[in-house]
Every structure is written in C-alpha cells, then in structure tokens.
Design a protein around this nucleic acid. Structure first.
Length: 424
RNA sequence: GGAGGGGUAGCGAAGCGGCCGUAACGCGCUCGACUCGAAAUCGAGUUACCGGUGAUGAGCCGGUACGUGGGUUCGAAUCCCACCCCCUCCGCCA
C-alpha cells in the first residue's frame, strides 16, 4: 500500500506513476472519496466531543446525587446521530482503503519508463551460450527420454501443467533445493525457514496478492486459506504486526517451498516442459532492510541469485524491468534470465524486487530507531532459484549428442556422485 | 471434538460500567546526577493511529484504539453474543 499522505499532498506523483504502469485507476476519484471521508470524520468527531463533555456532566450529577434526566434525553438523540454518522464514516473509510489496496507501488526514479517487456533494459550478462554441433533438444523431451519426467501420468493424476519426476530427476530437484539452501545459509546470511504452504487472507493481503489477484491463487473450498504462490508470502509476513530492532536490520530469510499458481490468463503459453507449472518448488530469499539501505540490499540479493547460476555454469543476463512490466508491489525489479539453447533465448529464472515500504505498510512491519519514532521497514524478495526452471536450463545446456546430460560439477556431491545422466 | 484459563503499551502485568488509556507496578529504552570510566543507585522522560491547524516539521486542539466483529447503555477494557488465537487437561490421530 502506498502512503495515504503522499496521495493527499502530491496526487500528481501518484497519477504519473499510475500512467507509467498503464493503470486505469483515477486519482481524482480517490481524492473525492477521501474528501468525503474527512468531512464525515470531522463532523462525527465534533459530535463525539460534545458527547464526551456531556457524559462527564452526567457522571458528575450521579456523583453529587443531582437529577440528570434532561441531559440524558438530549444525549439520546445525539448518540443516535453519532451512530448514523459512524456507520457512514466507517463505509467511507472502507471505500478509501479498498481503493488504496488496489494501487500498485510507485516505481523508483531509477526504473526505466516503458510500455511492456520490450522496453526492459539489459544491465549485465554472464557466460557464453555454448555452440552445439547438433540441434539442441527441449528440456521436456530430454527429461522424458531419459525417464526422469512424466507429463502424461501427471495429467492422469491431476491435469495439465503438472509434472511427475522420477529417479534422477526427482533427486536432481531435491539436490537443487538443497544446494540453493546451503549456499544461502552457509555462504550468505539467510536463516532457513520451513513455513506453512497455506496462509490466510490477511497474510495474502499483506504482501499484495489480495485483494487484486485472487484469480491467480488456489483457495481451499471450505476454508479462507490459500495455497502460497511463493514463499515470499509467509516469509515476508513472518514479521507482520511487529516492531523490529534497528540493530537487527537487515534480516534475511530463505525457504524451499512448493508454489501454487493458477496461471489464469496464460492459456497456451509454455505448454511444453517445466517452464509454467501449477505447482513447482522454489527457494525464495526475503530481506527486511533499513529504508536507507534497501536499494543496496537489492544489489546484494540479486548478487546471491546470480552467484547460483554462475556456480551452475549457466549463462544468464540481468535486466531492469521497465515501469510497464513491473509487478504490483515492486518499486524496482531485476529479472535474471537464463539461456535456454533449444529456444535460443534467455528465459526468466529469477525476479528480485525491492518493495520499499509497500508491503511493510500493508503488513504493518516496522522498526524502531534508537530513541526515534518507529517507521516502516523496506522488504525485498527474490527467487534463488526455482528448481524446475533450473533443471530445465541444466538439461538443455548440459545435453550431449548421445542424449546424455553432463551435470554441473557443484551438484555432483548432491547427486550421490553421479556426473552424467546416461540414456538407459 | 469436550472442560477450564487467558489475549491491555517494546515486554511482563494491574484495572473488571463514568474519578484508569499521555493505562498503576515491574522490565526495557532515552536523557541527566554520582564515577577516572563502568556497574549499582537516584531523578526525569518514553503508546500508536486518524482528523483539524501548521510547512508532508515542532507545538496545540479534537477523536479513536484493551484479540476481531456485533449488541446493551447517555457512557463499555469492564456487561451480553459470535468468531479467531494462545495455554492447561481429556478424547482422537500421522
């Protein structure tokens, strides 16, 4: 959620931000909702002030044994009027709140203004895409041929956009999660967490999935619980409603969890392979930072994700998302794209965002400077990394002419010494 | 699922219809005294949010908040109802 004060004092800043994101929200509509709320509030507050004074007089009468019936009669009508206005004020507040909850974050000044993904800006590139002396196959076909992936049986068990992994692929999935977690917890400052995979409505609202993106989520039929679309949700909300010590910042958490996404609106996209699943495993990084330090922390966290790809020897590039392509809660986002030889293209494998105070305000996550007033922390999140897309990249980049897959060296200890997946 | 206890400031905890929410008391934190310095001790200060007025500051005025949402009442932390969460015991269970 953005700062109400900012909208009130500088509506043009929000209007510009909304335009750069192609939002159809009308700031003027909000200003009139808020003006109505404030007018009602002023009126009811002055009536309440009268009531409080008069109530004090009633108490005084009772104490001194005097008659207060005239005063009480007057208070009766006043209280009725207050009750009426209270209801209207509450509704006006809900209207304002509802509007604010649907407003995306304001892009940072360093974010390029642009229409869509074609206007994202490349900022770094690592590794050389390998040249093949044969036509490289897609990872789905490779995995299926090697007996590790089974999409048909997954469709039988559940439906489309699910995968069953078996044998070496099941182990590779587990190896990747363990490898990522070990890197984050041993070579960086993350605390490993094993959170719930389903969370309540308040939690989903705290990170911004609700109320606007309900159709992207899986919800349990008889409960107001949702399956998490990313561990960002439970990890960020870990400190919801809390006041952290300034000295505790930055704080870093990571978790490997299944992620569940309805993929509404992506019918027909990425229907082959592991790229777009209803369920996938991802290691997520979340950081809570001091406002003065959060953009520095974004660079650090993006570095953590990049390092994993370098250790896996997978070529990638880093892009800064433009205003039109950024996610709802982000003020700035770096996407990391890994090279997929079968498609001859870089595909998103990680997204690292600084949400500044947007989620902290929704989830009420503050810190208290020594002797100062408490303020909202800044929250960051980044994928580090999803195991499915990482596996896709490993299969495609490591494939040999004979159909075997050479695994990255760092994974060999996690694969019980296996260096190469051989055709049966 | 059953029985009981509880949810109040950063933490612990008192209050159980108006004189108690800038919320007793204790801890913590900030400043000061003492000290070469520290500890201990002593003194002072320290809730958040919303509205009005200021400069998106300070201050001042007003309002709201005692798990959440309703109700009773002129007035609710306090009484009633529903729900959520935590603790103890019992039952069931991976």
């Amino acid at each position: 959620m953005i700062d109400l004060k900012l909208v009130q004092k500088q509506p043009e800043v929000l209007a510009r931000a909304l335009a750069s994101r192609h939002s159809d929200l009308d700031v003027n509509e909000f200003l009139s909702l808020d003006a109505r709320r404030r007018a009602l509030l002023s009126e009811v507050e002055s009536l309440k002030s009268q009531r409080n004074t008069a109530s004090g007089q009633v108490a005084a009468c009772k104490r001194e044994g005097r008659d207060a019936s005239a005063l009480l009669a007057e208070l009766g009508t006043l209280s009725d009027r207050i009750k009426e206005l209270d209801a209207q004020t509450a509704q006006a507040r809900v209207d304002v709140e509802t509007w604010l909850l649907r407003v995306p974050n304001i892009p940072d000044a360093s974010v390029p203004v642009g229409r869509d993904e074609t206007e994202n800006v490349e900022v770094a590139r690592w590794g050389q895409p390998r040249s093949f002396d044969f036509t490289p196959h897609e990872h789905g076909d490779l995995g299926t041929a090697l007996g590790g992936l089974d999409f048909e049986r997954a469709a039988k068990l559940t439906g489309s956009r699910f995968a069953v992994s078996l044998g070496w692929a099941a182990r590779l999935d587990r190896a990747l999660a363990n490898f990522f977690l070990d890197q984050h917890t041993v070579h960086a400052d993350y605390l490993e967490v094993s959170p719930p995979y389903m969370v309540n409505r308040t939690t989903m609202t705290g990170t911004g999935q609700l109320p606007k993106f309900e159709e992207d989520l899986f919800r349990l039929a008889e409960w107001d619980y949702y399956l998490i679309p990313t561990a960002e949700v439970p990890l960020t909300n870990l400190h919801a409603g809390e006041v952290l010590e300034e000295a505790q910042l930055p704080r870093a958490y990571c978790a490997a969890t299944p992620c569940f996404r309805s993929e509404a609106g992506s019918a027909g996209k990425d229907t082959r392979g592991l790229i777009r699943m209803h369920q996938f495993t991802k290691v997520e990084m979340v950081r809570f930072a001091h406002p003065d330090d959060s953009f520095n922390q974004l660079e650090i966290m993006t570095g953590h994700a990049r390092r994993l790809l370098e250790l896996l020897e997978l070529p990638y590039r880093v892009i800064t998302l433009c205003t039109g392509d950024m996610g709802f809660g982000a003020a700035k986002t770096y996407d990391i794209e890994v090279w997929l030889p079968a498609q001859q293209t870089y595909r998103e494998i990680s997204s690292c965002s600084n949400c500044i105070d947007f989620q902290a305000r929704r989830a009420d996550i503050r810190f208290k400077p020594k002797g100062g007033k408490s303020a909202f922390v800044h929250t960051l999140n980044g994928s580090g990394l999803p195991t499915g897309r990482a596996m896709a990249a490993i299969l495609e980049n490591g494939q040999q002419k004979d159909g075997s897959i050479v695994l990255p060296k760092v994974l060999v200890p996690y694969m019980a010494g296996v260096e190469c997946i051989e055709p049966r």
